[in-house]
Design a protein around this nucleic acid. Structure first.
Lengths: 324, 324
DNA sequence: GTGAAAGCGCTAACAG
DNA sequence: CTGTTAGCGCTTTCAC
């Protein structure tokens, strides 16, 4: 069942069928009707691959995330998936597992078989990003600010919100705090650390502990937090913070009475842990929707290089309070 | 940059280049070497779409999930993504949002543009599944047992584990319990309910409350749980159970002292909530790996219709205890 | 073992 | 407005 069968059935040429299917206005109402009728009756569906080869585009967009185990990306992906679907695009998701080599390979391959690429919090150096951009297909970078390259970006500004959060903790009266620092290669992670440092200069005594992006990693830091004699823990993300919460509860340390805990991201779980987690709400859905809109624009020929900045804001819940 | 450029550069025909790239043994070592050298020097990469059109397969497999917001699917997707990647396949993930019409449409479209389709816990009636199967491409169904169709399946047997869990609660001494029942269309959900019912006949007085697959939905059921005067709540999944845990904590109801709570799935959060959730460990990673293996077999021509059954098992943690 | 050539199913000039 | 036709880049017979 090809376009020729439809053409024969409707008594027109394949070009006409193609035009009707493409919604071209340059077809008489009568022929268009006949074609549509044949399409319906024969149950014809265009062959995506053939269409792609002839037209030069796949209506496929790649999405590369550094780690699919992180819940943060699901809200993002879910939103982009639906918006893309609405515009007739399909997404191919790949996960680099925080591996720079994999990120580079996957990005290259993905770009080769799609019309565009959305890089979520890419970790690769900017010269690798340049490689992607040079392929002359739409590339969109999420949550990383890049000045050296004319690549479109959607970023959530985490510095102000993280700073506010740290100031809030300082205002509550905390002096000795532990900061659980995330991946060094992540721009977001650097920004959050920069914000905490800026407050450290204003009277907060900060001990830094490196932590991975998992609850287990957060959980493992608890002994060090306790050893540091801190009255508050600021985690660079919610996952780590929730791990800490669990570890503290197991040891009978009360939150926030004995120690305050904060996270970052406001993943859905954060409001359902006990006590509910004070964190920063990062507008994941909005990032997803803005990101797809930007990608869709690029696909239609918009000039690349724009940067959209979204704001995050602290969400104060039960896991923070004044020190004893 | 096409295969012709490589052919010209290496001084061979395009057919030879194609053969070398396909790893065909019927090429002399010398020509093969020259071709590989040219490929390397020119930085040639085959055009995926053209290859697909000529060969008739895309090396793309569709994955349809009922709801990407449900954490249950994360580990599953991540695992399938990596295993598929290793075998040179790419996955196109789509989310039907629990909508039967969308599920049908997405399944049809996905199947049209891929080599095969993996349906995760499909909700559509089996006559729709038959439609998919009739397309004569590999179809794999996860977590739903279908007897009427020769379609390959990978299912986790939830009845025995859920029954054990319910018996455990009964053995602890609970008599009045609330069961939070999930989507009626989900086979897994039906199996779990069947298991609880089977124990109800043995002295458990069960009140059923319908609940959605979210923490918020679980949270909302708390007043009804309290009103029912139950000493234990069995939720059909962890998300709902965690919502309940949060709701109980807010009201100062102690778990498990005042009321016991159980979930199902053992999503990563379950061991990090306080108290840690008693649940059933469903081997999501294993499902993912077995599922991809099955799909890969089907793609290579294995006969469809096999059913792989995996076992789940109760995980007893802090959220259950004897009634007061 | 190697090459020539015929498609795969569709789009998009181009001509009428 | 409609039809003819030449590709899109690759795979795969089919001869040699």
């Amino acid at each position: 069942m090809t376009i020729r069968d439809v053409a024969r059935d409707a008594g027109v040429s394949v070009a006409t069928v193609s035009r009707v299917l493409a919604g071209s206005a340059t077809v008489s109402a009568e022929l268009a009707g006949r074609v549509r009728e044949s399409v319906r009756r024969l149950g014809y569906a265009p062959h995506t691959v053939a269409r792609s080869l002839a037209s030069g585009h796949t209506r496929l967009v790649g999405v590369l995330v550094p780690n699919l185990a992180n819940h943060y990306f699901y809200a993002l992906i879910k939103r982009m998936l639906h918006d893309a679907e609405r515009d007739g695009y399909r997404l191919i998701v790949a996960d680099s597992d925080e591996d720079l080599v994999a990120e580079r390979e996957l990005g290259t391959n993905l770009l080769a078989q799609t019309d565009g690429l959305i890089l979520c919090s890419p970790r690769v150096p900017s010269n690798v990003l340049r490689l992607f951009v040079q392929r002359d297909k739409p590339v969109l970078v999420l949550n990383r600010a890049i000045d050296a390259l004319p690549v479109s970006q959607v970023v959530v500004e985490s510095y102000p919100a993280m700073r506010q959060l740290a100031l809030h903790v300082a205002d509550l009266g905390h002096r000795r705090v532990v900061y659980l620092q995330g991946p060094l290669r992540s721009w977001q992670s650097k920004e959050r650390w920069r914000a905490v440092r800026s407050v450290a200069r204003r009277g907060l005594e900060v001990t830094t502990v490196r932590v991975g992006a998992t609850m287990a990693a957060g959980h493992r830091t608890v002994p060090r937090i306790l050893a540091a004699g801190a009255t508050a823990v600021l985690a660079y993300n919610d996952l780590a913070a929730i791990g800490v919460l669990a570890g503290l509860a197991e040891r009978g340390v009360r939150v926030p009475d004995d120690i305050s805990v904060t996270g970052y991201d406001d993943i859905p779980f954060s409001r359902y842990v006990t006590p509910a987690l004070t964190t920063v709400r990062s507008p994941q859905e909005e990032v997803g929707s803005v990101a797809w809109k930007a990608m869709e624009g690029l696909l239609r020929g918009d000039r690349p290089g724009t940067r959209t900045v979204l704001a995050a804001e602290p969400v104060l819940r039960g896991s923070t309070g004044p020190p004893r």
